[in-house]
Write a protein that binds this DNA or RNA. Sequence first.
DNA 1: CGAGCCCTTGACCACCCGGTCAAGGGTTTC
DNA 2: GAAACCCTTGACCGGGTGGTCAAGGGCTCG
Lengths: 205, 205
Amino acid sequence: MSNGRRLTARGRERRDELVAYATRRFAENGFHPTSVSDIVDGVGVGKGVFYWYFPSKDDLFLEILRDALLDLRRCQQAALADAEDPLQRIELGIRASLAWSADHREILKLVMFAWSEENFASALKKGRRVATADTARHVQDAIDEGLIPAGDADALATSIRGVTEELSRVHLVDGDRLDDTVVATAVRMCLGGLAASGADRAEIG
Amino acid sequence: MSNGRRLTARGRERRDELVAYATRRFAENGFHPTSVSDIVDGVGVGKGVFYWYFPSKDDLFLEILRDALLDLRRCQQAALADAEDPLQRIELGIRASLAWSADHREILKLVMFAWSEENFASALKKGRRVATADTARHVQDAIDEGLIPAGDADALATSIRGVTEELSRVHLVDGDRLDDTVVATAVRMCLGGLAASGADRAEIG
DNA sequence: CGAGCCCTTGACCACCCGGTCAAGGGTTTC
DNA sequence: GAAACCCTTGACCGGGTGGTCAAGGGCTCG
């Protein structure tokens, strides 16, 4: 149980070491194919060490997941703290998300996996609700200030996440760079989509 | 080995039954937590039946995945066959994707999982390259015809898929409906994003 | 110095997994 | 009718799984 236990400096180091190695292996190999024995062998310790720091393999995974979502959110909020214009905040949020993903590419795969099993997916859903609400607030602000046409702020926020995450996935999962073109495309799609009214497509048909 | 084997009508039925049941269980429970025994027990047959029709559990999963990607593509192409305007084709493709996802919600989870393990992910990547190319061609057409500003057609196509998939995920995985508002939002974001030039955000800052 | 706690070890456990296979029932075919 | 093939059964296998635990090392205090 990692809950109430007091850790020495050495203990904290060992724990971090396990988290880091497990994260890497989970991302490379998948969660289930990576056994607890793989992890402790990789770190070079006995199996009991794992269960000294974590109640179970599932709990470790949940911890990795929750910490990641938390850290991403912190980065986003820090990035847009100074901007006052809602659309500028959205753009800064997008850029922060992409930068964070580039620095934590392993996490992308873990998140994909987490969707596929209920006990992990529920943690994700909670995180997503929060993230969507964050963005949706700025979208609604932009609507209220007359900067963009009205619309479903939640669905718009979800779309924005869809763009940033899919671009991250495609360009980062295989080790590619996330170059400026891609970032510019993300911004173009999101801000352009927000700026459009649903009626625009009447022009097309 | 399902390869060269000749199946009677009864055989084909049994095989389909296994595929259908396995798909459902994989989506509900996850791939690894669903054992071959679970599947054959659920269908009410002996274990040997499974290995009569499929060489392995992994192969079954790959088959489900590939068939799904193929079917989705067929639906998309059928949907946009009549339209000539590139942007109209894109819109029809988006609507077809959303409709297909609504009719195959289990697949969404399987795809998420598939990303997390290399042997499955590689099948996905191949499918995605094709899907991206399909969309990117219409995007490029629209650029060439002067309907939208220039840009990275591949990244734009990827963004479109990001929007449609994320909206599908959020609104379908938990059994919600995919109502018209959401579809309209998807179309607004995608066509609006395409219509925007990257320079638009200069207005904002 | 010794008490007490943090940390580590690795053999061990019960369980279940994917996959095999010899045997036999049903259908089809000639 | 019988040969040939499709399909089904379920006991069985080797091996790996997540998790436990008694035992002990070593650091940190009083």
